[in-house]
Write a protein that binds this DNA or RNA. Structure first.
Length: 516
RNA sequence: GUCAGUGUAGCUCAGCCGGUUAGAGCACAGCAUUCAUAACGCUGAGGUCGAGAGUUCAAGUCUCUCCACUGACACCA
Protein backbone atom coordinates (compact mmCIF):
# COMPACT_ATOMS: atom_id res chain seq x y z
CA UNK A 1 0.00 0.00 0.00
CA UNK A 2 3.00 2.24 0.23
CA UNK A 3 2.79 4.41 -2.85
CA UNK A 4 4.43 7.60 -3.88
CA UNK A 5 2.30 10.67 -4.00
CA UNK A 6 3.33 14.05 -5.35
CA UNK A 7 1.33 17.21 -4.86
CA UNK A 8 2.19 20.75 -5.81
CA UNK A 9 0.90 24.21 -5.08
CA UNK A 10 1.36 26.77 -7.80
CA UNK A 11 4.69 28.55 -7.68
CA UNK A 12 3.46 31.86 -6.39
CA UNK A 13 4.39 35.00 -8.20
CA UNK A 14 6.46 37.17 -5.89
CA UNK A 15 5.14 40.42 -7.17
CA UNK A 16 3.54 41.07 -3.81
CA UNK A 17 3.24 39.52 -0.38
CA UNK A 18 1.10 36.37 -0.01
CA UNK A 19 -2.63 36.88 0.17
CA UNK A 20 -5.53 34.85 1.43
CA UNK A 21 -5.98 33.10 -1.90
CA UNK A 22 -2.50 31.63 -1.91
CA UNK A 23 -2.93 30.67 1.73
CA UNK A 24 -6.10 28.86 0.82
CA UNK A 25 -4.48 26.89 -1.97
CA UNK A 26 -1.55 26.00 0.19
CA UNK A 27 -3.67 24.93 3.15
CA UNK A 28 -5.71 22.69 0.88
CA UNK A 29 -2.56 21.10 -0.48
CA UNK A 30 -1.23 20.66 3.00
CA UNK A 31 -4.37 18.84 4.06
CA UNK A 32 -4.06 16.49 1.09
CA UNK A 33 -0.37 15.94 1.73
CA UNK A 34 -1.00 15.12 5.37
CA UNK A 35 -3.85 12.83 4.48
CA UNK A 36 -1.67 10.96 2.03
CA UNK A 37 1.13 10.59 4.52
CA UNK A 38 -1.26 9.29 7.14
CA UNK A 39 -2.53 6.87 4.54
CA UNK A 40 0.95 5.46 4.37
CA UNK A 41 2.13 6.99 1.13
CA UNK A 42 5.50 8.53 0.47
CA UNK A 43 4.65 12.12 -0.20
CA UNK A 44 6.50 14.83 -2.02
CA UNK A 45 4.75 18.12 -1.26
CA UNK A 46 6.20 20.85 -3.38
CA UNK A 47 5.66 24.57 -3.21
CA UNK A 48 7.69 27.59 -4.12
CA UNK A 49 7.84 30.88 -5.90
CA UNK A 50 8.05 32.14 -9.44
CA UNK A 51 10.42 35.05 -9.49
CA UNK A 52 11.03 36.16 -13.04
CA UNK A 53 9.32 38.47 -15.46
CA UNK A 54 8.95 42.04 -16.39
CA UNK A 55 6.35 42.78 -13.78
CA UNK A 56 8.72 41.81 -11.03
CA UNK A 57 11.57 43.68 -12.64
CA UNK A 58 9.48 46.81 -12.67
CA UNK A 59 8.20 46.34 -9.17
CA UNK A 60 11.76 46.02 -7.98
CA UNK A 61 12.74 49.18 -9.80
CA UNK A 62 9.87 51.04 -8.22
CA UNK A 63 11.08 49.90 -4.82
CA UNK A 64 14.61 50.86 -5.73
CA UNK A 65 15.78 47.31 -5.26
CA UNK A 66 17.69 44.79 -7.30
CA UNK A 67 15.17 42.20 -8.54
CA UNK A 68 16.92 39.46 -6.64
CA UNK A 69 16.68 41.40 -3.41
CA UNK A 70 13.04 42.10 -3.96
CA UNK A 71 12.45 38.41 -4.60
CA UNK A 72 14.37 37.44 -1.51
CA UNK A 73 12.24 39.76 0.53
CA UNK A 74 8.91 38.45 -0.73
CA UNK A 75 10.08 34.86 -0.63
CA UNK A 76 10.81 35.23 3.03
CA UNK A 77 7.27 36.40 3.60
CA UNK A 78 5.93 33.30 1.93
CA UNK A 79 8.12 31.04 3.96
CA UNK A 80 7.21 32.86 7.12
CA UNK A 81 3.49 32.49 6.45
CA UNK A 82 3.73 28.82 5.50
CA UNK A 83 5.57 28.28 8.69
CA UNK A 84 2.87 30.04 10.69
CA UNK A 85 0.22 27.97 8.94
CA UNK A 86 2.09 24.78 9.71
CA UNK A 87 2.44 23.86 6.05
CA UNK A 88 4.27 20.56 5.78
CA UNK A 89 5.93 21.15 2.45
CA UNK A 90 8.95 19.04 1.55
CA UNK A 91 10.46 21.31 -1.05
CA UNK A 92 10.40 25.01 -1.67
CA UNK A 93 11.37 25.91 -5.20
CA UNK A 94 12.79 29.22 -6.23
CA UNK A 95 12.98 29.88 -9.93
CA UNK A 96 15.88 32.24 -9.44
CA UNK A 97 18.03 29.41 -8.14
CA UNK A 98 20.97 28.00 -10.06
CA UNK A 99 19.66 24.49 -10.21
CA UNK A 100 16.42 25.72 -11.69
CA UNK A 101 18.27 27.59 -14.39
CA UNK A 102 20.18 24.46 -15.16
CA UNK A 103 17.01 22.41 -15.40
CA UNK A 104 15.39 24.94 -17.68
CA UNK A 105 18.37 24.79 -20.01
CA UNK A 106 18.41 21.02 -20.09
CA UNK A 107 14.70 20.83 -20.60
CA UNK A 108 14.94 23.36 -23.38
CA UNK A 109 17.57 21.35 -25.17
CA UNK A 110 15.26 18.36 -25.10
CA UNK A 111 12.50 20.44 -26.60
CA UNK A 112 14.94 21.62 -29.26
CA UNK A 113 15.83 18.03 -30.06
CA UNK A 114 12.19 17.30 -30.63
CA UNK A 115 12.23 20.14 -33.13
CA UNK A 116 9.51 21.95 -31.24
CA UNK A 117 11.04 25.42 -31.20
CA UNK A 118 11.25 27.97 -33.97
CA UNK A 119 11.85 31.68 -34.28
CA UNK A 120 8.74 33.66 -35.01
CA UNK A 121 7.53 37.14 -34.90
CA UNK A 122 4.95 38.48 -32.54
CA UNK A 123 3.45 41.88 -32.64
CA UNK A 124 0.53 43.40 -30.87
CA UNK A 125 -0.61 45.17 -27.77
CA UNK A 126 1.14 43.92 -24.71
CA UNK A 127 0.16 44.23 -21.08
CA UNK A 128 3.10 44.10 -18.73
CA UNK A 129 0.79 43.36 -15.84
CA UNK A 130 -0.44 40.24 -17.56
CA UNK A 131 2.86 39.56 -19.28
CA UNK A 132 0.96 38.84 -22.42
CA UNK A 133 -0.36 40.03 -25.72
CA UNK A 134 -3.98 41.01 -25.89
CA UNK A 135 -6.46 40.57 -28.68
CA UNK A 136 -7.62 44.09 -29.39
CA UNK A 137 -9.96 45.45 -32.02
CA UNK A 138 -8.08 46.97 -34.94
CA UNK A 139 -9.37 50.50 -34.63
CA UNK A 140 -8.41 50.93 -30.99
CA UNK A 141 -5.44 53.31 -30.91
CA UNK A 142 -4.76 53.34 -27.18
CA UNK A 143 -6.18 50.14 -25.76
CA UNK A 144 -6.34 49.49 -22.06
CA UNK A 145 -5.95 46.17 -20.33
CA UNK A 146 -9.33 45.12 -19.04
CA UNK A 147 -7.74 43.43 -16.06
CA UNK A 148 -5.17 45.97 -15.02
CA UNK A 149 -6.82 49.12 -16.34
CA UNK A 150 -3.50 50.23 -17.68
CA UNK A 151 -2.47 51.27 -21.15
CA UNK A 152 -1.08 48.53 -23.30
CA UNK A 153 2.28 48.81 -24.98
CA UNK A 154 2.77 48.20 -28.67
CA UNK A 155 5.36 45.55 -29.25
CA UNK A 156 6.78 43.99 -32.30
CA UNK A 157 9.44 41.49 -31.54
CA UNK A 158 11.03 38.23 -32.36
CA UNK A 159 10.08 35.41 -30.07
CA UNK A 160 10.85 31.78 -29.91
CA UNK A 161 7.75 29.68 -30.31
CA UNK A 162 6.84 26.29 -29.00
CA UNK A 163 5.00 23.95 -31.34
CA UNK A 164 1.97 23.40 -29.22
CA UNK A 165 -0.09 22.66 -32.31
CA UNK A 166 1.89 19.50 -32.85
CA UNK A 167 0.42 18.03 -29.69
CA UNK A 168 -3.21 18.68 -30.55
CA UNK A 169 -4.22 15.02 -30.66
CA UNK A 170 -2.29 13.94 -27.62
CA UNK A 171 -3.62 16.79 -25.52
CA UNK A 172 -7.17 16.14 -26.64
CA UNK A 173 -6.85 12.58 -25.51
CA UNK A 174 -5.22 13.49 -22.25
CA UNK A 175 -7.81 16.01 -21.12
CA UNK A 176 -10.58 13.55 -21.87
CA UNK A 177 -9.18 11.16 -19.33
CA UNK A 178 -11.61 10.94 -16.47
CA UNK A 179 -10.30 12.81 -13.46
CA UNK A 180 -7.48 14.55 -15.25
CA UNK A 181 -9.16 17.92 -14.89
CA UNK A 182 -11.12 18.70 -11.74
CA UNK A 183 -13.61 19.89 -10.86
CA UNK A 184 -15.66 18.54 -13.73
CA UNK A 185 -17.30 21.88 -14.33
CA UNK A 186 -14.02 23.23 -15.56
CA UNK A 187 -13.17 20.32 -17.78
CA UNK A 188 -15.62 21.39 -20.45
CA UNK A 189 -14.05 24.80 -20.71
CA UNK A 190 -10.69 23.30 -21.45
CA UNK A 191 -12.07 20.69 -23.82
CA UNK A 192 -13.86 23.45 -25.63
CA UNK A 193 -10.77 25.54 -25.84
CA UNK A 194 -8.59 22.76 -27.14
CA UNK A 195 -11.14 21.64 -29.69
CA UNK A 196 -10.84 24.99 -31.42
CA UNK A 197 -7.30 24.12 -32.33
CA UNK A 198 -4.11 24.80 -30.46
CA UNK A 199 -1.83 27.57 -31.57
CA UNK A 200 1.87 27.68 -30.93
CA UNK A 201 2.85 29.97 -28.11
CA UNK A 202 5.86 32.09 -27.47
CA UNK A 203 8.34 30.96 -24.90
CA UNK A 204 10.80 33.81 -24.94
CA UNK A 205 10.94 37.57 -24.60
CA UNK A 206 13.54 40.04 -25.71
CA UNK A 207 14.69 43.09 -23.82
CA UNK A 208 13.95 41.47 -20.54
CA UNK A 209 16.91 41.04 -18.32
CA UNK A 210 15.21 39.52 -15.30
CA UNK A 211 14.76 35.99 -16.55
CA UNK A 212 16.61 32.90 -17.57
CA UNK A 213 18.71 33.38 -20.66
CA UNK A 214 17.97 31.32 -23.73
CA UNK A 215 21.09 29.49 -24.84
CA UNK A 216 22.38 30.72 -28.19
CA UNK A 217 19.88 33.54 -28.35
CA UNK A 218 21.56 36.20 -26.31
CA UNK A 219 18.82 38.79 -26.42
CA UNK A 220 16.18 36.37 -25.26
CA UNK A 221 15.06 35.25 -21.88
CA UNK A 222 12.44 32.59 -21.27
CA UNK A 223 8.86 33.64 -20.95
CA UNK A 224 7.74 33.32 -17.36
CA UNK A 225 5.40 30.43 -17.98
CA UNK A 226 7.96 28.25 -19.65
CA UNK A 227 10.28 29.02 -16.80
CA UNK A 228 7.83 28.71 -13.93
CA UNK A 229 6.18 25.44 -14.87
CA UNK A 230 9.58 23.83 -14.92
CA UNK A 231 9.86 24.66 -11.27
CA UNK A 232 7.90 21.49 -10.70
CA UNK A 233 10.75 19.60 -12.31
CA UNK A 234 13.55 21.28 -10.43
CA UNK A 235 11.62 20.79 -7.21
CA UNK A 236 11.45 17.08 -7.88
CA UNK A 237 15.17 16.54 -8.21
CA UNK A 238 16.31 13.69 -6.08
CA UNK A 239 19.54 15.49 -5.37
CA UNK A 240 19.06 19.22 -5.57
CA UNK A 241 22.73 19.93 -5.52
CA UNK A 242 23.11 17.93 -8.70
CA UNK A 243 20.59 19.27 -11.21
CA UNK A 244 20.86 16.66 -13.91
CA UNK A 245 17.78 16.02 -15.96
CA UNK A 246 17.95 12.31 -16.61
CA UNK A 247 15.45 9.52 -16.52
CA UNK A 248 16.06 8.73 -12.89
CA UNK A 249 17.25 12.00 -11.45
CA UNK A 250 13.75 12.90 -10.35
CA UNK A 251 11.95 11.42 -7.41
CA UNK A 252 8.21 10.93 -7.24
CA UNK A 253 7.68 12.05 -10.81
CA UNK A 254 5.17 12.95 -12.21
CA UNK A 255 2.81 14.83 -9.92
CA UNK A 256 -0.34 13.08 -8.84
CA UNK A 257 -2.04 16.40 -8.57
CA UNK A 258 -1.25 19.99 -9.36
CA UNK A 259 -3.52 22.18 -7.28
CA UNK A 260 -3.96 25.62 -8.78
CA UNK A 261 -6.36 28.53 -8.99
CA UNK A 262 -8.91 28.34 -11.75
CA UNK A 263 -7.23 31.25 -13.53
CA UNK A 264 -4.22 29.23 -14.51
CA UNK A 265 -5.89 25.96 -15.32
CA UNK A 266 -5.14 26.12 -18.99
CA UNK A 267 -1.45 26.46 -18.50
CA UNK A 268 -1.41 23.38 -16.37
CA UNK A 269 -3.87 21.26 -18.27
CA UNK A 270 -2.72 22.09 -21.78
CA UNK A 271 0.61 23.86 -22.16
CA UNK A 272 2.36 22.03 -19.40
CA UNK A 273 1.58 18.47 -20.52
CA UNK A 274 2.54 19.42 -24.07
CA UNK A 275 5.88 20.72 -22.89
CA UNK A 276 6.48 17.50 -21.01
CA UNK A 277 5.53 15.39 -23.99
CA UNK A 278 7.98 17.33 -26.08
CA UNK A 279 10.73 16.64 -23.58
CA UNK A 280 9.81 12.98 -23.45
CA UNK A 281 8.62 13.16 -19.86
CA UNK A 282 5.59 11.80 -18.09
CA UNK A 283 2.57 14.04 -17.71
CA UNK A 284 0.82 14.70 -14.40
CA UNK A 285 -2.06 12.52 -13.29
CA UNK A 286 -4.42 15.36 -12.51
CA UNK A 287 -4.91 19.07 -12.27
CA UNK A 288 -7.31 20.65 -9.82
CA UNK A 289 -8.46 24.22 -10.40
CA UNK A 290 -10.07 25.61 -7.30
CA UNK A 291 -12.23 28.70 -7.03
CA UNK A 292 -11.60 32.18 -5.72
CA UNK A 293 -12.49 33.81 -2.46
CA UNK A 294 -14.55 36.91 -2.06
CA UNK A 295 -15.05 38.74 1.19
CA UNK A 296 -18.50 39.54 2.49
CA UNK A 297 -19.77 39.18 -1.06
CA UNK A 298 -17.24 41.51 -2.62
CA UNK A 299 -14.17 40.90 -4.65
CA UNK A 300 -11.07 41.53 -2.63
CA UNK A 301 -8.86 44.21 -4.08
CA UNK A 302 -6.57 47.01 -3.25
CA UNK A 303 -8.87 49.58 -4.77
CA UNK A 304 -11.71 48.48 -2.50
CA UNK A 305 -9.36 48.34 0.44
CA UNK A 306 -10.97 45.13 1.65
CA UNK A 307 -8.09 42.74 1.27
CA UNK A 308 -8.01 40.25 4.11
CA UNK A 309 -4.44 39.75 5.17
CA UNK A 310 -3.79 36.12 6.12
CA UNK A 311 -1.44 37.16 8.90
CA UNK A 312 -4.12 39.32 10.46
CA UNK A 313 -6.69 36.58 10.17
CA UNK A 314 -4.26 34.17 11.73
CA UNK A 315 -3.63 36.48 14.64
CA UNK A 316 -7.32 37.01 15.12
CA UNK A 317 -8.64 33.47 14.96
CA UNK A 318 -5.62 31.23 15.20
CA UNK A 319 -4.29 28.62 12.87
CA UNK A 320 -6.87 25.94 13.59
CA UNK A 321 -9.74 28.31 13.05
CA UNK A 322 -8.35 29.56 9.79
CA UNK A 323 -7.58 26.15 8.37
CA UNK A 324 -10.84 24.65 9.53
CA UNK A 325 -13.03 27.39 8.18
CA UNK A 326 -11.40 27.47 4.77
CA UNK A 327 -11.50 23.72 4.30
CA UNK A 328 -14.77 23.01 6.00
CA UNK A 329 -16.97 25.81 4.79
CA UNK A 330 -15.79 26.55 1.31
CA UNK A 331 -16.59 24.11 -1.42
CA UNK A 332 -13.24 23.16 -2.85
CA UNK A 333 -13.36 23.90 -6.54
CA UNK A 334 -16.08 26.51 -6.38
CA UNK A 335 -15.83 30.18 -5.56
CA UNK A 336 -16.37 30.92 -1.90
CA UNK A 337 -17.21 33.89 0.25
CA UNK A 338 -15.34 34.69 3.40
CA UNK A 339 -17.71 35.99 6.06
CA UNK A 340 -16.34 37.00 9.40
CA UNK A 341 -19.50 36.23 11.36
CA UNK A 342 -19.73 32.82 9.83
CA UNK A 343 -16.04 32.20 10.36
CA UNK A 344 -16.51 32.78 14.08
CA UNK A 345 -19.77 30.81 14.27
CA UNK A 346 -18.53 27.76 12.41
CA UNK A 347 -15.28 27.52 14.28
CA UNK A 348 -16.85 28.00 17.70
CA UNK A 349 -19.65 25.60 17.00
CA UNK A 350 -17.59 22.82 15.43
CA UNK A 351 -14.30 22.97 17.22
CA UNK A 352 -15.11 24.42 20.64
CA UNK A 353 -18.69 23.38 21.34
CA UNK A 354 -19.08 20.12 19.53
CA UNK A 355 -15.62 18.59 19.62
CA UNK A 356 -13.79 20.45 22.38
CA UNK A 357 -16.60 20.20 24.84
CA UNK A 358 -17.14 16.54 24.06
CA UNK A 359 -13.57 15.75 24.95
CA UNK A 360 -13.67 17.93 28.01
CA UNK A 361 -16.85 16.53 29.50
CA UNK A 362 -15.79 12.95 28.90
CA UNK A 363 -12.34 13.25 30.36
CA UNK A 364 -13.79 15.00 33.38
CA UNK A 365 -16.20 12.14 34.01
CA UNK A 366 -13.56 9.55 33.45
CA UNK A 367 -11.12 11.08 35.87
CA UNK A 368 -13.79 11.76 38.42
CA UNK A 369 -15.11 8.22 38.59
CA UNK A 370 -12.27 6.02 37.44
CA UNK A 371 -9.18 8.05 38.05
CA UNK A 372 -6.67 6.86 35.48
CA UNK A 373 -7.90 3.36 34.79
CA UNK A 374 -11.15 2.63 33.06
CA UNK A 375 -12.24 -0.85 34.13
CA UNK A 376 -13.76 -2.31 31.01
CA UNK A 377 -14.31 -5.77 29.69
CA UNK A 378 -12.77 -5.54 26.21
CA UNK A 379 -14.92 -8.33 24.88
CA UNK A 380 -17.95 -6.08 25.25
CA UNK A 381 -16.43 -3.31 23.15
CA UNK A 382 -17.91 -4.45 19.89
CA UNK A 383 -21.38 -3.80 21.17
CA UNK A 384 -21.05 -0.05 21.29
CA UNK A 385 -23.25 1.75 18.80
CA UNK A 386 -20.48 4.30 18.54
CA UNK A 387 -18.27 1.67 17.01
CA UNK A 388 -20.66 1.32 14.12
CA UNK A 389 -21.05 5.06 13.70
CA UNK A 390 -17.36 5.65 13.71
CA UNK A 391 -16.80 3.02 11.06
CA UNK A 392 -19.44 4.59 8.84
CA UNK A 393 -18.03 8.06 9.32
CA UNK A 394 -14.46 6.97 8.78
CA UNK A 395 -15.47 5.52 5.44
CA UNK A 396 -17.29 8.68 4.45
CA UNK A 397 -14.33 10.74 5.52
CA UNK A 398 -11.84 8.74 3.48
CA UNK A 399 -14.01 8.55 0.43
CA UNK A 400 -14.62 12.30 0.45
CA UNK A 401 -11.00 13.09 1.06
CA UNK A 402 -9.98 11.01 -1.91
CA UNK A 403 -12.34 13.13 -3.98
CA UNK A 404 -10.78 16.31 -2.56
CA UNK A 405 -14.16 17.00 -1.03
CA UNK A 406 -12.98 18.57 2.19
CA UNK A 407 -16.41 19.76 3.17
CA UNK A 408 -17.96 16.31 3.30
CA UNK A 409 -14.90 14.91 4.89
CA UNK A 410 -15.08 17.52 7.65
CA UNK A 411 -18.79 16.97 8.03
CA UNK A 412 -18.17 13.32 8.69
CA UNK A 413 -16.05 14.28 11.68
CA UNK A 414 -18.68 16.64 13.03
CA UNK A 415 -21.37 14.02 12.54
CA UNK A 416 -19.37 11.58 14.57
CA UNK A 417 -18.82 14.09 17.36
CA UNK A 418 -22.54 14.86 17.39
CA UNK A 419 -23.29 11.17 17.67
CA UNK A 420 -20.99 10.92 20.64
CA UNK A 421 -22.60 13.89 22.36
CA UNK A 422 -26.01 12.39 21.78
CA UNK A 423 -24.79 9.08 23.07
CA UNK A 424 -23.74 10.66 26.33
CA UNK A 425 -27.03 12.49 26.75
CA UNK A 426 -28.85 9.30 25.99
CA UNK A 427 -26.87 7.08 28.35
CA UNK A 428 -26.55 9.75 31.05
CA UNK A 429 -23.63 8.18 32.86
CA UNK A 430 -23.84 10.89 35.53
CA UNK A 431 -27.11 9.29 36.59
CA UNK A 432 -26.03 5.69 36.22
CA UNK A 433 -22.95 6.20 38.31
CA UNK A 434 -25.11 6.84 41.34
CA UNK A 435 -25.96 3.17 41.28
CA UNK A 436 -22.76 1.36 42.20
CA UNK A 437 -23.83 -1.83 40.41
CA UNK A 438 -23.88 0.11 37.12
CA UNK A 439 -20.28 1.15 37.32
CA UNK A 440 -19.15 -1.31 34.67
CA UNK A 441 -21.73 -0.05 32.24
CA UNK A 442 -20.63 3.50 32.85
CA UNK A 443 -17.02 2.50 32.29
CA UNK A 444 -17.86 1.02 28.94
CA UNK A 445 -19.84 4.08 27.91
CA UNK A 446 -17.09 6.45 28.89
CA UNK A 447 -14.52 4.34 27.19
CA UNK A 448 -16.58 4.28 23.99
CA UNK A 449 -16.81 8.04 23.91
CA UNK A 450 -13.12 8.48 24.65
CA UNK A 451 -12.37 6.07 21.86
CA UNK A 452 -14.56 8.12 19.57
CA UNK A 453 -12.60 11.19 20.65
CA UNK A 454 -9.40 9.44 19.73
CA UNK A 455 -10.73 8.73 16.27
CA UNK A 456 -11.95 12.29 15.92
CA UNK A 457 -8.52 13.51 16.94
CA UNK A 458 -6.94 11.39 14.24
CA UNK A 459 -9.38 12.38 11.53
CA UNK A 460 -8.86 16.01 12.38
CA UNK A 461 -5.15 15.75 11.76
CA UNK A 462 -4.95 16.70 8.07
CA UNK A 463 -7.33 19.61 8.61
CA UNK A 464 -6.09 21.07 11.87
CA UNK A 465 -2.87 19.35 12.89
CA UNK A 466 -2.31 21.55 15.92
CA UNK A 467 -5.72 20.91 17.41
CA UNK A 468 -5.42 17.24 16.55
CA UNK A 469 -2.26 16.97 18.57
CA UNK A 470 -3.80 18.80 21.52
CA UNK A 471 -6.67 16.33 21.54
CA UNK A 472 -4.43 13.30 21.27
CA UNK A 473 -2.17 14.68 23.97
CA UNK A 474 -5.06 14.84 26.40
CA UNK A 475 -5.69 11.20 25.65
CA UNK A 476 -1.99 10.53 26.15
CA UNK A 477 -1.58 9.22 22.66
CA UNK A 478 1.65 9.54 20.76
CA UNK A 479 0.83 11.56 17.68
CA UNK A 480 4.21 11.29 16.05
CA UNK A 481 3.62 8.14 14.08
CA UNK A 482 -0.02 7.92 13.21
CA UNK A 483 -1.06 5.67 10.40
CA UNK A 484 -4.66 5.59 9.30
CA UNK A 485 -4.68 1.95 8.28
CA UNK A 486 -3.37 0.94 11.65
CA UNK A 487 -4.86 3.56 13.94
CA UNK A 488 -8.42 3.92 12.75
CA UNK A 489 -9.67 0.72 14.32
CA UNK A 490 -12.09 0.62 17.17
CA UNK A 491 -10.78 -0.29 20.55
CA UNK A 492 -7.15 0.72 20.31
CA UNK A 493 -7.29 3.16 23.19
CA UNK A 494 -5.59 1.61 26.17
CA UNK A 495 -8.01 1.88 29.12
CA UNK A 496 -5.12 1.91 31.53
CA UNK A 497 -3.19 4.57 29.75
CA UNK A 498 -4.52 7.47 31.77
CA UNK A 499 -5.63 10.92 30.73
CA UNK A 500 -4.29 14.41 31.05
CA UNK A 501 -6.12 16.98 33.10
CA UNK A 502 -8.98 18.28 30.98
CA UNK A 503 -8.26 21.69 29.61
CA UNK A 504 -10.24 23.27 26.78
CA UNK A 505 -8.46 22.34 23.57
CA UNK A 506 -10.09 25.11 21.60
CA UNK A 507 -10.84 28.56 22.92
CA UNK A 508 -13.73 30.42 21.48
CA UNK A 509 -13.27 33.33 19.18
CA UNK A 510 -15.09 36.46 20.13
CA UNK A 511 -16.96 38.01 17.28
CA UNK A 512 -16.21 41.60 16.79
CA UNK A 513 -17.60 43.48 13.83
CA UNK A 514 -14.48 45.53 13.26
CA UNK A 515 -11.96 43.01 14.38
CA UNK A 516 -9.97 43.09 11.20
C1' G B 1 -21.66 39.31 -28.30
C1' U B 2 -21.28 33.57 -28.34
C1' C B 3 -21.09 29.28 -25.16
C1' A B 4 -21.32 27.04 -20.16
C1' G B 5 -22.64 27.07 -15.00
C1' U B 6 -25.23 28.96 -10.78
C1' G B 7 -29.76 31.25 -8.43
C1' U B 8 -33.82 26.60 -2.50
C1' A B 9 -34.99 29.43 4.95
C1' G B 10 -30.66 35.32 7.89
C1' C B 11 -25.80 32.29 6.44
C1' U B 12 -23.50 27.69 4.00
C1' C B 13 -25.69 24.02 1.34
C1' A B 14 -28.72 18.72 0.37
C1' G B 15 -32.82 17.72 -2.64
C1' C B 16 -31.60 10.96 -7.36
C1' C B 17 -35.03 9.02 -12.94
C1' G B 18 -41.24 15.01 -11.60
C1' G B 19 -45.49 12.52 -6.83
C1' U B 20 -48.16 13.11 0.04
C1' U B 21 -47.69 19.08 4.69
C1' A B 22 -39.69 21.39 0.76
C1' G B 23 -34.74 19.22 4.24
C1' A B 24 -29.75 19.62 7.20
C1' G B 25 -26.05 22.39 9.84
C1' C B 26 -25.03 27.24 11.71
C1' A B 27 -27.37 31.72 13.58
C1' C B 28 -31.99 33.12 16.40
C1' A B 29 -36.09 32.17 20.40
C1' G B 30 -38.12 29.14 24.38
C1' C B 31 -37.52 24.86 27.69
C1' A B 32 -34.38 21.90 30.41
C1' U B 33 -29.71 21.40 32.70
C1' U B 34 -24.09 20.17 34.95
C1' C B 35 -20.71 15.26 33.30
C1' A B 36 -19.00 19.66 30.36
C1' U B 37 -15.96 25.56 27.38
C1' A B 38 -23.46 29.81 29.45
C1' A B 39 -21.22 24.03 26.43
C1' C B 40 -24.71 19.18 25.40
C1' G B 41 -30.05 17.95 24.72
C1' C B 42 -35.27 19.02 23.47
C1' U B 43 -38.85 22.28 21.13
C1' G B 44 -39.91 26.28 17.96
C1' A B 45 -40.03 30.29 14.49
C1' G B 46 -38.06 31.01 9.18
C1' G B 47 -38.80 29.66 2.40
C1' U B 48 -44.85 32.20 -3.08
C1' C B 49 -37.64 26.78 -4.12
C1' G B 50 -34.61 34.20 -8.98
C1' A B 51 -39.26 36.10 -12.24
C1' G B 52 -42.98 34.81 -15.86
C1' A B 53 -45.28 31.36 -19.12
C1' G B 54 -45.95 26.25 -20.69
C1' U B 55 -46.21 20.56 -20.60
C1' U B 56 -48.61 17.22 -16.93
C1' C B 57 -53.55 14.32 -12.86
C1' A B 58 -48.99 16.31 -10.38
C1' A B 59 -42.89 20.65 -11.04
C1' G B 60 -37.94 23.03 -6.65
C1' U B 61 -37.32 18.75 -10.07
C1' C B 62 -39.02 18.84 -17.57
C1' U B 63 -39.56 23.01 -21.86
C1' C B 64 -39.35 28.25 -23.34
C1' U B 65 -38.54 33.52 -22.24
C1' C B 66 -36.51 37.06 -19.03
C1' C B 67 -33.41 38.88 -14.79
C1' A B 68 -28.95 38.48 -11.62
C1' C B 69 -24.21 36.56 -10.64
C1' U B 70 -19.83 33.55 -12.19
C1' G B 71 -16.62 31.47 -15.77
C1' A B 72 -14.59 30.35 -20.86
C1' C B 73 -13.87 32.53 -25.69
C1' A B 74 -5.12 31.99 -26.27
C1' C B 75 -0.68 33.36 -24.12
C1' C B 76 -4.58 36.50 -16.77
C1' A B 77 0.92 32.77 -10.77
Amino acid sequence: MNMKYTITTPLYYVNDKPHLGSSYTTIACDAIARFQRLSGNTVLFLTGVDEHGQKIERTAVSKNLQPQLHCDEITEKYKYLWDKLNISYDRFVRTSSEEHTSIVHQFYSRVLESDDVYMGRQSGWYCVGCEEYKDIEDNDKSPICSIHKKELEWRDEENLFFRLSKYQDQIEKLIQVDGFISPKSRKNEIVNFVSKGLRDFSISRINLKWGINVPENKDHTFYVWFDALLGYVSGSLRDQSCPELTDDSLCNWPANIHVIGKDILRFHAVYWPAMLLSAGMKTPASVFGHGFLTREGQKMGKSLGNVLDPIELLEYGGIDAMRWYLLRDIEFGEDGDFQMKRFVDIVNSDLSNTIGNLLNRTITMSKKWFNDKIPIDKSLLTESSLKLHSEIKINEYIKSFNDSNFRNSANAIIDLANKANLYLNDRAPWKLIKDITKKEIVALDIYSVLETCRIIGLLLNPFVPDLSIRILNQLKIDSSSINFQKSLHWGLLDPDNGLEEPRPVMDKIEFNENSI
